[in-house]
Amino acid sequence: MSEQPVHFEPTADGAFLPTRFAQSHWGEDHLNGPAIVGLAAVVLEQEYGREEFLPSRLTVDLFKAARGVPTTVKTNLVRDGRRVRNSECELVQDGVTVAHATLVQYRRAEAPRGTEWTPPGEFAVPTEVDPSRAIHVSSDGQGWTNEIADHQNAARKRTWGRSIQVVAGTDNSAFVRAAVIAEGTSLVTNLGTAGVGYINGDLTVALVRLPVDDWIGVQAETHWAADGISVGTSTLYDRAGAFGSGMVTAVSNAAVQVDFGNDPFPSRTH
């Protein structure tokens, strides 16, 4: 198994074997969200992506905890329209579907006349970036650091990061990079004073364009919680400005809450 920073190794029979970099903070044999989202994005784009279409919305439903076992993929082209393409895939482990993803692609076209409202969003890119670190974290009043534990507070949060390779031998496309980093919506919205106690059951990432390079920012926009259920939204940024949104719904997982100040798996991706 690869010791390079990659989430999955392809196998001779067409499956994908998770590496240690795909392991999450939730347990010894539990894959992280970016790995699962990334694999779905890679497969759907490779199978059904078209140059003249923009991958505008990816929704990944995380049905059950994915484990460190060979993972197979089932794909299906739902609709092949002139302006809209819809496709889907299932990630399967030991005969059980652990995640389901849908991809909506829109044909690129000339913009309509007029000017629409956009929010006055701002994102301050870190003035110094450590290229050896995959993630930089900031919270209001705290500034940028490389440690998630520094931001276990009740302030608004943001990240600036880049994704590791999802599948060995396959470079991450701009779409895959955006999907993987957008999974950080869960972190910037659900990280509180005691760590992360909500585990997200899905991710929706919506794009109006692709990111300009490897580095992508995720900034919390809303977070609502009641009865052990939370909803969080984010805006995605690159060096050229905002280019999309993320949304996650999540359920309380308080029994194994992740406290980054006392993290048993400090080298893992959230």
Rank of each mutant, 00 (worst) to 15 (best):
H270A: 07
L39H: 07
G33K: 03
V258S: 04
G228R: 09
T97C: 13
V43I: 15
I36C: 01
W224S: 01
K64R: 15
H151F: 04
V196K: 00
R107H: 06
T97F: 02
E3A: 14
A65I: 13
D140A: 14
W160R: 05
L39R: 05
D202G: 04
H223S: 11
R83C: 00
W144L: 02
S56I: 06
R85Q: 13
A174Q: 13
K157C: 01
V167E: 08
G141F: 15
T204N: 00
T11K: 08
G184K: 07
T185L: 10
R20F: 04
G68A: 12
P112V: 03
G27D: 14
A174N: 10
Y48M: 07
E122K: 12
H25Q: 15
A12H: 13
P264W: 13
W117V: 01
I181G: 07
D214N: 07
V69L: 14
F265L: 07
D80H: 13
G68H: 08
R239M: 04
T59Y: 03
G244P: 09
V256K: 14
G201I: 11
P10M: 11
R239V: 08
P112R: 02
L236M: 15
I199G: 03
L44A: 11
F260I: 06
D130S: 13
V176W: 11
V78E: 13
S252L: 03
S230Q: 01
P112C: 02
G195W: 01
D202I: 02
G141A: 12
A179G: 09
F63D: 07
P266K: 07
T170E: 10
R83H: 12
L54C: 03
A179C: 15
V176M: 10
E90A: 09
D29I: 04
F243L: 04
T71I: 08
A65E: 15
I135G: 01
T11V: 06
D29N: 14
L203E: 04
S24A: 14
P5S: 10
D130P: 05
G14W: 09
E9W: 05
T72Y: 13
T75F: 08
T249K: 09
I148M: 06
G27K: 08
Q105S: 09
V231E: 02
G184C: 12
T269P: 01
P70R: 07
E183I: 01
A154L: 14
E110W: 00
A40Y: 08
T145M: 10
R162D: 01
P55E: 09
G246E: 00
F123P: 10
F53D: 05
L203W: 05
A41I: 03
I135F: 12
V256H: 15
G141V: 14
P18A: 02
S56D: 10
A255C: 00
E52V: 09
